[in-house]
Write a protein that binds this DNA or RNA. Sequence first.
DNA 1: ATGCGCCAAGTTTTT
DNA 2: CTTGGCGCAT
Length: 795
Amino acid sequence: MRKMTCTDVEQANPGYPQTPVLVDMSEQLTEAQQEAVEHIDGPMLILAGPGSGKTRVVTHRIANLLQHGIAPHRIAALTFTNKAADEMRIRLGTLAPGQDVWMGTFHRFCARLLRRYAPLVGLQENYSIYDTADSKQAMKRAVTAANVSTSHTSPEQIAAVISRAKNRLVGPEMMQGQSLRANETVAARVYPVYQQQLLTANAVDFDDLLFHIARLLRESPELRAELDQRYQYIMVDEYQDTNLAQYAIVRSLSIDYPNLAVTGDPDQSIYGWRGADLNNILDFEKDYPHVKTVRLEKNYRSTPNILRAADQLIRHNTRRKNKQLLTDREEGAAVVLRMYEDGYREADDIADQITAAIAMEDCRPRDFAVFCRMNALTRSLEHAFRSRSLPYQIVNGVEFYQRKEIKDLLAYLHLINNPAHDVALLRVINVPTRGIGAKTIERLRDFADSHRLPLLEAARRVDQIDTLPARSATKVRQFVEMFDRLSIKATAALEDLVLYLLEETGYRKYLEKSSVDEQDNSPLANVDEFVTATVEFDRQHPDDGSLEAFLEQVALVSDTDAWEESNDRVTLMTMHAAKGLEFPRVFIIAVEDDLLPHYRCKEDPMQVEEERRLLFVGITRAEQQLQLSYCKRRAMRGEMRPVVGSPFLMELPREEMRSVEPDDSNQFFDAPDEFAYPDSWDLPAVDANDDHDELCQLPPEEQMPEKPAKSDKALPAALTTAAKLLDNQDQTQKVPLSAFKQGMVVTHAEYGGGRIATLTGRGPKCTATVEFFNGTQRSFRLAFAKLVPGDQDLD
DNA sequence: ATGCGCCAAGTTTTT
DNA sequence: CTTGGCGCAT
């Protein structure tokens, strides 16, 4: 189970302006790095390739600023993830101990400002931050209240449109006139309602954090000037991932004091879907005319083999800044390109490889990472790892905070902190059940909506709702009374508050009663862990009104923040989550068409480029060894489907890579009928730039560079000819899985005849244990085993 | 009002 | 294979 992390972001020791700064300038920095570190005033763009020591440069630069007498509180370092901020804080801690430089994510930066200036946007300072699930609930309610037809759209789509609007700084009023497309028109009508309801609930969603601050800065010149002066030296990490709102914020804080230093790499921009605008970094030099540009092109992380693969791949993109990847390191092992029959074998083999390496070589579980495109793909690996007792950590898994019992507890806390938090109230008003059903809630909501009141306030005025039966009104009144009892404890230590509410609300009893049979990961155990986390938080925040801080913390931590470097475990994560990390040995699984260039973005060349960058990010995490793999078939939404390798694989320097096919050439049933080349490949891969290799324009068959020796075997499925396919199919006997029954006689190609002793599992996992007539006993996955019914002769 | 069970839908990436 | 939404029986 995931551990809760309680990293404090605010550092509360303002009294150390004169602490000596321990910049160890004797540490070797390259010329380019030195240049960046020593830059003080004016805008700077640091184009930092992967593994180029960017964090080191940034922290050294901050130390250098401090050494030049710039007050720590004049500096702010904005990052994209908490993880990156923590890393920076630790590194700066060794260079300049005790300095109070603000470091954190954009969202946290804005959240903090918004606490102070909440009234300016119509909020109170105890406003709540809705997470994605909360906004989804709120959106549904807004859609209902706006009374629009959702026949051709969904709340999710509307939410996406509104989110995009906010990221582009388009407010509800601006959207009315301009929209054209159908679902945008609907969204435009929901938008103001949604926003009004957020305001009533004294809440913001993630986008609002940026949006409100960006607007404030634009509409209040005084405030803008004040904050510009307050934060005279701003650094932005991962600048290629900023959206327009973030751009605007940074921009308006760098007018009077244009000492803005941004680091980034256009090739690692992978958040376009979230509104990130690559132009922010591509046009930085235009936006800030006297900008100093520094390129960090030397890579300290990966072997030349890995870098060449990354470089070849990314060359196929058009929207980028030319950049070399240089290294002094030794060649290292060839990059491995591996094909598997299916995802299970892929998982098993990777688990075996890792197990063997740990046993035979000088490496540990923490040296390994497995990346994938979607979280769902970690399932099979999890299974394989667990069965081998290989320690692993999933950075994402079933997220702790998303479990029902944790969300319920958090909802109670949210409600205590912000009684207007409607989503929280709706969540807990009848959990455990208190006789407040759907009808009652509907009436409460109608009353609240028509009076623009928070639901709890409506509940307080339950007497004014004449449509409500007396019995229901009583229940509601009892709930309000209970809430008031909780409220009294709001300022108590978090732990006490949580323990108190567990009893007072009857929630603990409710859990004890409802969860009898569940053993692993029982809700009660999660509740205990939650309590532990509050204890920890209390310990770290002895003074401040910790409930609000705690809730903000929880809202703004992401799953990627759960990753713990100190654990000696194999890491399983998405490539998005992997950004900024590095591992000696990396496996990237499911590099398959429709998955890596995800099918939902294949029509848009820009998005395909982003997918390519995603793979680039994955590849460049690897220090020493890298394996890319794909399968012939993969279980998707419950059933096996044939798949083909990603077209990106064709863009790699395959002649120098090591291609591996499954060593046991097991036949399989239901051979995929289309191993055909993906259509997208027929499109010219990249038009534009000078330097793309002509291989791309050849038809698939000729595209393969000549292979040395046994290249035939090494051909990926994607390139298998139709003729071979037919061949293959002819040899493959099609036997439906259902043909196998317990007790029946079967024949195996290697072991000969035998009898099925047991049959377990279903579908692709169906496994037969066979007692062979020669005395041995073996288990097989029916879907893959060379097993046929009856007592036959096999050639 | 509650709670169970069925059916349908929809599956990217995250602050 | 999972979640969420809805309808039915208690």
